Simulated assay, not measured.
Amino acid sequence: MMRLKNTWRKLLCMKHYALCIILLMACSAENKYNTYYPVNFVFFTSLYPTSALTRAVGSPGMFCIVKPYTSQGVTHLKLTPNQGSWQASDLDLVMRTAIGNEKLSYTSMGAGRGLVIGHSNSFGLKAYDLQCPNCLEEYGAAKYELHWTKNGRFLECDKCKRVYNQDNDDGYIAENGHDGDKMLIQYRYVNFNSTEGRLVVHN
């Protein structure tokens, strides 16, 4: 009888241990994505078939910085790809259609209204915030945008000089990092429906 009780105790301990491992893994996966800064970005590639962003979502290794701005009451998307030669019209997209300029909002685009969207070589579609996560936390203002460096291979912050690798599952720091540093702010849902020609990013 005592042996049976001990066996049950061991089984229960093993069960609890396994449950803890599963919960820790789930928490780790959850913490990988940011839900604090709202993102709700929709882009119709079918309307801009030659744009840098359209090519980025279907080309492994290619990423594009996406920033909205308004000129004469019309929304534009300014695109800065990490590679390629482009026409000016493929980098400054005018949202002239009703769905692009009236029905879609470009205010929910992360900490400072800027995203980095593209297709990782090994991990599929990715969407990151354009702000340096470490300067954003340290200084508390969305004033520290990243820019392309090393011929578009990485993203760099001018303030802290950290260099991030966007072509990775986590957006880790490639250069000038320190213990406890944050990786790129990453958003959970990135979907490209090629049939409908629609890209959606949200958290």
Rank of each mutant, 00 (worst) to 15 (best):
S120A: 07
A26R: 09
A142Q: 12
Y128F: 10
A26Q: 09
G84L: 01
M95L: 12
I99R: 15
A174M: 06
V190K: 00
V201M: 04
G180T: 11
A88Y: 12
H119I: 02
K67S: 02
T7F: 14
G112M: 08
H119P: 00
G100F: 02
G152K: 03
E137Y: 10
K67D: 06
E137V: 08
V39D: 05
Q87E: 11
S108L: 12
D179Y: 15
I65Q: 06
A88S: 15
T195K: 15
G197W: 03
R96K: 15
C160T: 09
G171N: 00
N193L: 02
K103T: 11
C20K: 13
G84C: 12
H119V: 01
E102F: 11
I22D: 15
D167L: 05
W8K: 13
Y33A: 08
Y164Q: 11
I21V: 15
S85C: 14
K161V: 09
D170L: 02
R113D: 10
F192Y: 15
E30W: 11
L11T: 06
P49I: 07
L93R: 09
D179L: 12
G110H: 01
D167P: 03
L24G: 14
I22M: 15
N101Y: 08
R3Y: 11
L47E: 12
E30L: 15
S105V: 03
L184M: 14
L130F: 02
M62Q: 10
K143M: 13
G140C: 07
W86G: 04
V190C: 01
F41E: 06
N134F: 09
S51F: 00
L184C: 12
V42H: 12
R3K: 15
C132P: 03
Y128M: 05
K15I: 07
S122W: 01
E175M: 09
N176Q: 08
A142G: 06
K126N: 00
F192Q: 02
H147T: 15
V190N: 01
D129V: 04
L104K: 07
E156S: 14
F63K: 03
L130D: 03
V201S: 00
Y189H: 14
G140K: 06
G152V: 05
P81R: 03
Y164C: 02
S194C: 10
K67T: 08
A26M: 12
P60G: 03
Q166N: 05
A52E: 05
G152R: 00
S59G: 04
T35R: 14
N165L: 10
G73F: 03
S46D: 13
T7D: 13
